[in-house]
Every structure is written in C-alpha cells, then in structure tokens.
Design a protein around this nucleic acid. Structure first.
Length: 376
RNA sequence: GGGGAUGUCGCAUAGUGGCUAUUGCAGUAGACUGUAAAUCUAUCACCUUACGGUAUCGGUGGUUCGAGUCCAUCCAUCCCCA
C-alpha cells in the first residue's frame, strides 16, 4: 500500500493525495460509504461503482462477525469476494458498536465482554481477536480496537480510556505483525486517536498514535454529540500532530459542511452513515441545501431531483416523483434517494479536491458552506 | 311489502351507565454524524402563539345525579325473505 501526498493548500491545511491499494487507487480527500453488513443499504455494487463513484466502502466487524459469521466469510474468500466488490474496503473494528450497542459491557485491560444484540450470547473481544476477525473479513484497511468515549465524558474517564486504547493498540500492532493477510493482498492497520474533548488528552493520544508509525491514522470519538466547534478544534489540534505524509481519517463525520471544515484542517478520509440513512428517511443533500422530500411543498414540483447533481437519478426523476415513491414506501424511492445522497457526497469531495488543486479551496469552501446549510 | 343488522375525529377499529373516548393507518412536521434505524419523535375535532377554552360518538326527544353505552322515534347503509 502506498500514499502519495500530492499537494497541500497554501491557505489551509487541505491536502490532495492518492492512496494506492491492491484493490485500486483512492483519490483523497475521499468519502467512504458505509456498508455495515456486506451491503451499502439500498444500492447495488454496480450503482455504487458506476453512479455514485465510490472508491472505497466500509464494512463492520461487529455485525459481520455475527452475520453471516466468520466461517462463512472465510469460506467465501473474504468480504470482497462475498459481496462482489472489487475496490477497496475498510473495516471498522467493532469498538464503536461495543460503545453504541451494548447496554451491559465490561471493559477491562484484557478486552471487552459484551452481550450480542442478535441472540443475547456473551462474547469477549480482545484487540488480538479484533485483528484476527479483520484478517478474515479481509478489508484493505483495518482499524485498531479502541474504546470510543461518549459525550459528555468526564476527564478521569477519558484519561483512563486513552490508556486502555493505547495498550490495546500495542496488542493490535503485535497481532497484526504476527499474522498475514489471508487472501494474498496487503492490509493496513490504522490506529485511532481518542481523548474526548480534552486538549491535553487529544495531544497525548495523537503523539502516541503518531509514534507507532503506522501506514495511516484515524481520529475517533468525535461527532458523538459534542458542539461542532469542539469537533473542529479537536480535529485541528490532532492533525497538527499526526504526520503529514500519512493519510488521516476522521471517523464518523459528518454533514457536508463538517467534511469541508475537516478537509480544511487536513483530513483525507471520511465515513458517515448520514447520507445513506437520511436518504432512506427522505432527507436529501444538495449544493443548494437540504431537502426534506417528504414535505408537501414538493408534491407537484416536477423539476429535476437535483439540477446540479451529477448522478443519473438527479436529472432523470423529479422531486414530485421521488416524494411519491418515498411516501408510498416503494423500494425504488430509497434506491434513488441513496444514489443521489451518496453521489452528492462523492461529488462534494471531488469538488473539494479540484479546488485544492487549483488553489481556490478556502474561498470556495466559505462560499459554499452557507448554501449547503440552507433548508429548502 | 316483511324481517334482521349496523351507524364512534379522513379510513379502519376499541369502548353496555362514572373521571382526559382506545388503537392502527393515512395526513402534517421534526430528528438522524466509525448503521440493530425503509427508523424514531411530535401533532393529528374546533378556537388560541401558548396557557387554556369549547365540543363530540347519524338526527331529535327521553330515562338518570351522570348516556357513546339504556328507551322512543326519525334518517342512512347493508343483509335476508317476498
């Protein structure tokens, strides 16, 4: 795997780069659609590649571990083969699910004991096991097993938590180095910075993570409910510490404007459920603002779904038609909305990339954000 | 012509004497940030920004301290027999 930093903006920390994996190249900054259980909900792999123009997607260790299970995934030859997605995949470690799903979980230095949401069975995940499972799933990029702290989170808890996350990281790295890829292509392990909204903890964590000299680095524990300003401040602080020549991934972010602000602070990779989930719920992101397509005002609006949108659904279907499909619960409505939103997110980062390259990023960003925030 | 049944807020429903008439759907709006989410929340008779107020169970009349619920009658719809 190889990352080439092509250019850094002169007016901001925004960067353009190219990440090369055994499953192809990724132009950064990039948005990675989330495909939790072996599918990006509502769309075909064909649409993902050709219409949305996704360059890499996510899979989730926690959910895939339970369904279909690692035996099936291994027998299938890994997730790429199983789902017939030939481009890169990144898998999350399950650390976030242990935080967001388990009511009864016990975190110790050894690992996490938690109850499955599917059948109530008890499981014990360790950093080593999280690596093993991710070897089997076979993502090109795999994530360290971390603890994602909630917001708000008191200082003592956050401080203790980064210690555990850091210890776990060492064990992840050991296990990662002591095992091999199962399917003949390279996998890269990304460690994760934590530290809640505390500057000194973020700094300490970022320095620790940077010292591990891994292929790329991630920032976790943000966009969990904290004010946007805090999220930006933490991102800024951490990106100043993380090495410039390695890709930086801000986990779970975010709104279109969050993404542009984070790009300005030196982030290269994003993932978020928002475009795909909100599509299913009828909320569309466009260059002119967000649209709640379920609103009565679109009932007889036969103009194109998104006149500035670049996917074929944007010009093929009208707002009134999509509103109708969503209102009557037709699957096609979800499919169209998801293609639109994910297509828009990919267009967003592509435009950002262009503007970084031609030196107009900051002006463009400041111009476009107020419009993105409009409610149509 | 004879006999029977049923009428509850757009639709469908619960409710045989007692406190704010139930629930679902539809409608209207809101939420959603490393996805247990095609989900969740609010609202959903009328007036009021709100607090709050006024109604209401096909119509009318009656019994009762009190009626969606009991009685009479009318109206509407459906079914059966001629």
């Amino acid at each position: 795997m190889h990352f080439e930093l092509e250019l850094t903006d002169s007016n901001s920390n925004a960067r353009v780069g190219k990440l090369t994996t055994d499953h192809g190249e990724i132009q950064t900054p990039i948005f990675m659609p989330v495909g939790t259980v072996g599918s990006v909900k509502g769309v075909h792999q064909h649409e993902l590649e050709n219409d949305i123009k996704a360059q890499i997607i996510l899979g989730n260790t926690y959910h895939l571990f339970f369904r279909p299970g690692i035996d099936t995934l291994e027998a299938a030859g890994g997730l790429h083969q199983f789902m017939n997605w030939k481009k890169p995949i990144l898998t999350d470690s399950g650390g976030f699910q242990v935080y967001s799903l388990s009511k009864s979980r016990k975190i110790t230095e050894e690992g996490v004991r938690f109850q499955s949401i599917y059948d109530g069975s008890y499981h014990f995940f360790t950093p080593e096991y999280a690596m093993d499972v991710q070897r089997i799933i076979g993502g090109d990029i795999i994530m360290a097993f971390d603890e994602c702290t909630p917001y708000p989170c008191d200082y003592r808890y956050a401080k203790n938590s980064i210690n555990i996350t850091h210890q776990w990281l060492d064990r992840c790295i050991n296990q990662f180095k002591n095992t091999d890829s199962k399917y003949g292509y390279e996998q890269a392990l990304f460690p994760i910075v934590q530290g809640s909204v505390y500057k000194d903890l973020r700094k300490e964590s970022a320095e620790y993570i940077a010292s591990k000299d891994m292929f790329g680095n991630a920032i976790g524990g943000l966009s969990v409910g904290e004010p946007e300003e805090e999220m930006y401040a933490m991102t800024e602080l951490v990106t100043e510490i993380l090495p410039k020549e390695k890709p930086r991934y801000l986990m779970g972010v975010g709104t279109p404007w969050n993404i542009l602000e984070a790009i300005a602070r030196g982030i290269d990779m994003f993932d978020c459920v928002m475009p795909s989930r909100n599509a299913r719920h009828g909320l569309l992101f466009t260059w002119e603002g967000t649209i709640n397509i379920k609103n009565k005002k679109w009932e007889k609006d036969f103009t194109p779904l998104d006149s500035l949108g670049k996917t074929y659904v944007d010009s093929t279907y009208s707002k009134a038609y999509l509103r109708h499909l969503i209102k009557v619960n037709e699957y096609l409505g979800i499919q169209i909305a998801t293609i639109h939103n994910l297509g828009f997110y990919l267009d967003l980062v592509t435009e950002a990339r262009k503007h970084i390259l031609d030196g107009t990023f900051t002006t463009w960003k400041n111009q476009v954000i107020p419009r993105l925030k409009e409610r149509l």
